[in-house]
Simulated scan of single mutants.
Amino acid sequence: MTERESQRNPWLVLTGFVGVVAVVAVVGALAAASAKDVYARLELPSWAPPASLFGPVWTVLYLMIALAGWLYWRTDGETQGFAAYGIGLLANLLWTPLFFEGGAARLALVDIVLLDVVVVVTIVLFARRSKLAAALLVPYLAWVGYATALNGAIIALN
């Protein structure tokens, strides 16, 4: 047991990670109140997913993100890893309001490209301490990469 674990209940800390990630999810959901209508009005590439897919995919990804952060914490993770993790959550939180409510698809693209980079950095930093924590972020990176391509295609088509 690490020093950090002996000072804090790990299950309480896991609840904290889930809570922080849930805040990001809820803000995204609130900002996406009109997302279904906006998405339906957009010219989409043939490979765009149906709107109904986003909720289930993000639910699983958010749980994996929270678990990855917690697993990294359990290793006495370094500040750099947590900084990257936090910056990634912030960039994630900003994308939905920018794209759907702000109508700022180009600014959302800048945000999501930053998110792509930050998730890669987070995976690299997490992998130094926990291969599992890093691996849990790989599907997130894949989805965000796909979303980046979709964001760019939507800009080109609209």
Rank of each mutant, 00 (worst) to 15 (best):
L67Y: 15
V13F: 04
A32M: 00
Y85M: 02
L98C: 01
W47C: 08
G16F: 15
A35W: 11
V120H: 11
F126R: 09
A127W: 08
V113A: 03
L63G: 10
W143C: 02
R128V: 08
P97T: 07
W73Q: 06
A33S: 15
A105C: 12
S46D: 14
N158G: 07
L137M: 00
L12P: 15
Q80H: 13
L150Y: 08
R74T: 10
I87L: 04
F126H: 11
E43P: 14
A156N: 14
E78D: 05
V119W: 11
V119Q: 08
F54W: 05
L109F: 03
A147M: 09
L141N: 13
F126A: 07
N92H: 02
T2L: 04
A153I: 01
N9V: 03
V26Y: 02
W58H: 07
I154H: 08
V60G: 08
V57W: 12
A153M: 00
L44A: 01
I155A: 02
D76K: 14
R74F: 10
Q80F: 11
W70L: 03
V60F: 08
P10G: 02
P97C: 07
W58D: 03
A31V: 00
Q80R: 12
F82G: 00
D37E: 13
A22V: 14
G88Q: 13
L30D: 12
F17W: 04
E3S: 15
G16M: 14
